[in-house]
């Protein structure tokens, strides 16, 4: 691994729910190949998966970038969805605007954002109504 690190970029399709989560699976496989410890991989994988699913079900897709350095992994998720009206409310366990059609897919319990925070060492949300959302998450190794 060089000092410049290894980066991954994904376009997350908002039209096709069946592919939601594919980028996270890919990242997990890559991190395993790079030999990161299982607990680090698990944290990155769960946080990114929750974020990726959110982009598909709440924001009609977006992009995911993962920057891998020897001592830190950074995930950047960007979308041009509706934005989050009240971030501190959205961060509460159990808060969800998901409808029944999302619940029937197995999501929409309002646990994703709190879970992303729990599994990462730092998480920042930038969001603007009608413009989109950018979430940056870091996991230390």
């Amino acid at each position: 691994m060089t000092d410049a690190g290894i980066n991954f970029h994904f376009d997350v399709d908002g039209e096709d729910f069946s592919s939601a989560g594919a980028a996270s699976v890919e990242v997990k496989k890559n991190l395993r190949q790079l030999g990161f410890p299982p607990d680090v991989i698990r944290k990155v994988a769960i946080a990114m998966y929750e974020g990726e699913i959110n982009m598909v079900i709440h924001a009609n897709g977006g992009t995911a970038d993962v920057f891998v350095l020897p001592d830190e992994i950074t995930m950047v998720l960007r979308d041009q969805g509706p934005g989050i009206a009240d971030v501190s409310l959205a961060m509460q366990e159990g808060f969800s605007t998901a409808r029944d059609n999302i619940r029937s897919l197995g999501f929409g319990a309002g646990m994703g954002l709190p879970n992303m925070k729990k599994y990462t060492d730092a998480m920042e949300i930038e969001t603007e109504l009608g413009k989109g959302t950018k979430i940056v998450m870091r996991v230390k190794i």
Partner: peptide, 29 residues
């Protein structure tokens, strides 16, 4: 799957009645 991601710790077996690819991806995660 939201609950599996949030509450499951090290359970190795998932029993579910939900059928979509996210079941497999969640299990993998």
């Amino acid at each position: 799957m939201s609950d599996v991601l949030a509450f499951v710790k090290d359970q190795a077996v998932l029993l579910t009645g939900l059928v979509n690819p996210q079941v497999m991806r969640t299990a993998e995660m």
